[in-house]
Structures are given as C-alpha cells and as structure tokens.
Amino acid sequence: MAEPFLIGDTMTGGYGKGPDILHECTIAVDKGEIAVIVGPNGAGKSTAMKAVFGMLDVRGGQVRLDGNDITKLSPQDRVLKGMGFVPQNHNIFTTMTVEENLEMGAYIRRDDYAETMDQVYDLFPILKEKRNQHAGELSGGQRQQVAVGRALMTQPSVLMLDEPTAGVSPIVMDELFDRIIEVARTGISILMVEQNARQALEIADKGYVLVQGRNAYTGTGQELLADPEVRKSFLGG
C-alpha cells in the first residue's frame, strides 16, 4: 500500500511531562478522503488528532505529511505546511464579524485571498449573508461554519475537525456533514473526531475506532458499520 497523504504513524505520547495517553496509535488519511476517529469517551480521540497536529509530545512514532517528516514542527508551522485545524471549543473570534474571522484565517497569506473567501461563501452561503455580523451572535451550526471557513482560508491540503457537530441539532449535523463531503470533493483530505459515530462512519472513507489510546478497529466506514463487534460495543447494536 502506498504511503497515505497524511499519517500519524504508531504515535506514542502525552501532554507535557504527563503520562502517555496514546500507545502506538496510527491515523492516516489520503487525498480527498474523509477519515473519522470514533470511540468511547476518554479513548484519546481528540488527543490522537492533536498529536497529528503537533499539540502534544509525540515520544514514539512519526507524523508525515506528503512523505515529509513533520513530527518536530509546531502547530503554527504545520498550518504553513497546509494543515487546517478546527478546535472543538472557542474556534471562532466571537467579537469579530464573520468576514473578519475569515480574514484572520488568512492572516499568514500575503497574496490576494479574495478568491478563497468567495469559495468559502459559495460553500456556506449563509455566511455571505451574515458577513458583517459578529460571529458571537450566530447560531451553533453557523458558528461551526465560520470555524470551518476560517480554517479553509489558508487553502489547506488537510482539514482537521475536532467534533464539529458537538452540540448542534441533528438537522444541522446532516447539513454540516454534507458540507464536509463537498470540501473533501475539492481534493482536501478530512480528518475528524466524532461523537456521532454512526452518522460519521456513513460518510467516512476510513474509520478508526480507538480504545484507551490504541487502535481497536480500522477499516472503511462501511466495513466498520458492518462489523458486528464494532456495532455491539460502540454503535449501540
């Protein structure tokens, strides 16, 4: 099998000087694919993604992007390399307008980003409508769109989303997933952590079930949904 576009290869590590939370955990995603990390609470889902993004100490294993070892890079440097990250909480500038949020997303870009902004507005038309409103005044689903839009402004090759549907209604969740599929179709790899395992696996090209910081099951979304063990333990039958 060829090297995936982004891979966190057998990562072991934890926060600062704390104990290891991840144990030889592997997460990978290919170009234009959607990879989803699921698992019970406290399984280290978000931790695994943060490890890929450089927010914790990876003591064993490697993170490679397009074949290059980026294990030692800071999150900021990874942004420059084309990784976009949407944190779970506090992922927008609430006191700034929608448009300013997008501008801040493009802060590191020195070229003209007007076209990218148009693309984001095409993807999330509601944001265009509310471009001059403060992001803090928007609904939960709209805020998530702002957060994703902000991350897209750097034209990343990988977009990482930490529980993008936490706290939004099922209808909004479906809509968000549709948008994420659309983003993936433009060739951007998506790596996301999800609580709503069933729905997420349905749109996933690849799924990772983590338990206590280890890979428990790995497969395509459909395979995992079909796996009786996974169904029984993690999808509620």
Binding site: Q76, V79, H90, F93, M96, E100
Partner: peptide, 15 residues
C-alpha cells in the same frame, strides 16, 4: 483584536 478575543485561535491563525 483577534488576539484579545481568543489567544489560542490567534496563535493557530499564525498571529
């Protein structure tokens, strides 16, 4: 303003 609003996200945006 971004830094004042949300320091972590500002850092993430390369500020």
């Amino acid at each position: 303003r971004a830094f004042s609003d949300n320091e972590d996200l500002a850092l993430l945006s390369g500020i």
